[in-house]
Computed example of a mutant assay.
Amino acid sequence: MNFNIIRTARAILNVTNLEESRRFYVNALGFVETESDDTHIYLRGLEEHVHHSLVLKKSDHPSVEVISYKVFSEEDLEALSVFFNKKGLKTKWLEPGVQHAIGRTLRVQDVSGLPVEFFAKMETVDRLLQRYDLYKGAKVQRIDHFNCAVTDVEKAYNFYIKELGFACSEYTTADDDKIWAAWLHRKPTVHDVAFMNGVGPRLHHIGFWLSDPMSVIHTCDVLASIGYGTSIERGPGRHGLSNAFFLYLRDPDGHRIELYNGDYLTSDPDFKPVRWDIDDPMRQTFWGHAAPDCWFNEASTVLDVNTGKVVDTSDPLLEKKKPSIII
């Protein structure tokens, strides 16, 4: 590996109504609207010093255009391009100016069929961490992770760890030791991306970090008070996996957002991944309450980075004896 991937960085979600999306993300959840035009809304968290971590893009149909990672330098982008092309994975360059507020980007469909992007530079803005007078809604601080449904978790696991340099914090296996789900990271927390056994490739959710568990509780009160109570899909609760305090929401187009707080440090080189058995009921929710069926079965479709068309999905390779999505 001769490239340095830093962290989860941004996502582009295609949405059908920008004003409805603005009401949900800005008015209800408290994202900072950095900028907007007739077809885009650029959002960030209060802690973030870059132009955006979430783009809402006007479209006829909801989908995921790309999920993105920041790398250390332009040289890392070049190295990634050579690497992917050697693997037979077709890349696409977007030069500066093609996308707003972001530098040169490299896009590729990864081994699971997910649309992935890498970049080194983005315009910077004022960080609003201590502008407490601007805090509202969930008081979202920063983007944290992606969770993706794929048909072959072990294939994704091996590619991201052995080829891209990610590390594993926690994973779930069945009796045959086949990996059903895995949490992988580049920054020193539980995950930048998780892969789970399911119909894929699809994006299950984007996780955003909140400053404390009470912000999650406060979010529920805010959502209920302004008519978004039905947007709450699951939680609040605490995961066994990751130890995180969580709340899952569905936006007006059905995209799933997790509000997230309370995981732990994974930076030590001798850190050993935590194994969970798929039959352990505490892995999903530490307190034991079950998730709704829609949480297991529904996720956002993803687009092909070269054609812009929806990527076809397939059933998972591992037989589903029970719902296997974890976080």
Rank of each mutant, 00 (worst) to 15 (best):
N2I: 07
F3K: 02
N4L: 06
T16M: 09
E19S: 10
E20D: 13
E20W: 03
E20L: 09
S21N: 12
R22G: 03
N27V: 01
N27W: 01
V32W: 01
E33Q: 10
T34C: 07
E35H: 12
S36P: 02
D38T: 11
L43N: 04
L43G: 03
L46Q: 04
E48H: 00
H51G: 09
H51E: 09
S53R: 03
V55L: 07
L56F: 06
L56Q: 05
V64H: 07
V64L: 12
E65F: 00
V66Y: 06
E75W: 08
L77H: 10
S81W: 03
K86V: 02
L89D: 00
T91Q: 05
H100K: 15
V111P: 04
V111A: 06
G113D: 15
L114R: 07
K121A: 14
K121M: 13
K121L: 14
T124I: 02
D126P: 00
R131L: 01
A138R: 01
K139W: 03
Q141R: 11
C148S: 14
C148G: 06
D152E: 15
V153T: 13
K155I: 10
N158L: 09
N158T: 13
Y160T: 08
I161T: 15
I161M: 15
E163A: 07
E163F: 00
G165H: 11
F166R: 10
F166V: 03
Y171Q: 12
D177A: 10
K178N: 12
I179D: 12
T189Y: 06
V190A: 15
D192W: 08
V193S: 07
M196Y: 09
M196A: 11
R202A: 13
H204C: 08
H205L: 07
I206Q: 09
G207Q: 02
S211A: 11
D212M: 03
M214E: 06
S215R: 02
A224D: 13
E233Y: 04
G240R: 05
L241N: 08
L241R: 00
S242L: 05
F245L: 02
L249I: 06
G254A: 10
H255P: 06
L265E: 14
L265G: 01
D268T: 02
D270E: 13
F271S: 07
K272H: 09
K272R: 14
D277K: 14
I278K: 15
M282A: 13
R283S: 06
D293L: 08
F296K: 07
F296I: 01
N297P: 00
V310K: 11
V311I: 15
D312T: 12
D312K: 14
T313W: 02
T313D: 08
P316E: 14
L317V: 15
K322A: 12
P323R: 11
P323F: 10
I327R: 12
